[in-house]
């Protein structure tokens, strides 16, 4: 792949890796427990938002199933901890593989027909959420309705001993996700995905293998969300269907990405930061319902006023305010 020799691309990779190193060194060393826990959640949201943007942002196929992939990762990891003494790495891999496998099955089926695009795709991924919830809450191996205590199974391990370690893991996953996101921003892969968003039929007629790209990217995006589920299982300590598969998770992820904008790979980063800070600020209200209302209302306002998100509102080259029509095709 010639695109990977592009210097600007490597500069971005280096910047991300540099930020990650600073975060891994500075936050656990100087931060209080609160800062570390907050940082862990923040980084997890970044992984989710970036991985959602990877598929849904690039292709325009909006998935409501991202919370499901995250939740499956959480439950897969919890099942590994509960039924075996395998180390954390195994749980992490199982989490990613489980989410990726589900996405593979769904993707192969759904993308086979062009009818399931747009809102129909969104609803199918939502239906997937309900089926997965029914399965998980009825299968005793995974949950069976009582919830799973993870904490007692991971007490002795490295990952389970401190939130600092979870933070380091999450940062690692974020670097991985950002790396993939950067790669899609300027390689053939990313260009193919965006051509699907702009006009799938034209892309196909010009020889872009849209089916293969869609399935592949859907799987990668889901697997990344699944990976993020593994440290989340330890962080939560007690895993329960209602919280893990809450509809808020896809809503927040979509909100972060829309707010940040999908026309640049780093848009979701800004979105994740804004939403996490907003949520933290709303905690002081003491009413989860009220903060929910404000968040939902904020999403409506953001969609109405900033269809391209924050990053889309910033001109592509600083100084030139000219906006070419080609850039207008962005957020859908």
């Amino acid at each position: 792949m010639n695109d990977l020799r592009d210097l600007a691309l490597w500069r971005q990779f280096a910047a991300v890796a540099g930020c990650a190193v600073v975060a891994v060194v500075a936050v656990p060393a100087f931060g209080s427990d609160f800062v570390i826990a907050f940082g862990f959640q923040f980084v997890t949201w970044i992984v989710l938002a970036l991985s959602w943007g990877l598929f849904s942002g690039n292709t325009g196929y909006a998935s409501f199933g991202h919370g499901v992939f995250f939740g499956i990762g959480t439950y897969a990891a919890a099942a590994v901890f509960r039924h075996s003494d395998a180390p954390f790495v195994v749980a992490l891999l199982v989490a990613g593989l489980a989410a990726g496998a589900l996405a593979l099955v769904v993707g192969l089926a759904v993308f086979a027909s062009s009818r399931f695009s747009g809102d129909l795709f969104g609803l199918i991924t939502l239906a997937m959420a309900f089926i997965v919830v029914t399965v998980v809450s009825n299968v005793a191996f995974l949950d069976g309705g009582t919830g799973v205590f993870v904490r007692e199974h991971v007490v002795g391990s490295w990952a389970g001993s401190s939130t600092r370690h979870l933070f380091v893991i999450a940062v690692g996953l974020a670097v991985l996700t950002a790396g993939v996101a950067i790669a899609t921003s300027s390689t053939r892969w990313g260009a193919a995905l965006r051509s699907i968003r702009d006009d799938e039929q034209v892309a196909e007629s010009l020889g872009v293998p849209t089916y293969r790209y869609k399935v592949l990217t859907f799987v990668v995006s889901a697997a990344l969300a699944g990976l993020a589920g593994a440290p989340q299982a330890i962080y939560l300590g007690y895993v329960e269907v209602g919280a893990v598969f809450s509809l808020n998770i896809p809503l927040l992820v979509i909100m972060m990405t829309i707010l940040g904008g999908i026309t640049r790979w780093w848009g979701p980063l800004i979105g994740a930061a804004s939403v996490v800070i907003l949520r933290e600020a709303l905690l002081d209200l003491g009413s989860p319902e009220l903060s929910q209302i404000i968040l939902g209302g904020a999403l409506v306002v953001v969609i109405a006023l900033l269809p391209h998100g924050v990053s889309g509102a910033i001109p592509r080259r600083w100084g030139t305010r000219r906006r070419t029509p080609a850039l207008e095709g962005g957020a859908r």
Partner: peptide, 18 residues
Amino acid sequence: PFTTLLITFALFIVTESV
């Protein structure tokens, strides 16, 4: 269409809380 889906989804969650 996708924007309307998102907005109604947001309103759905807001109404539940309200």
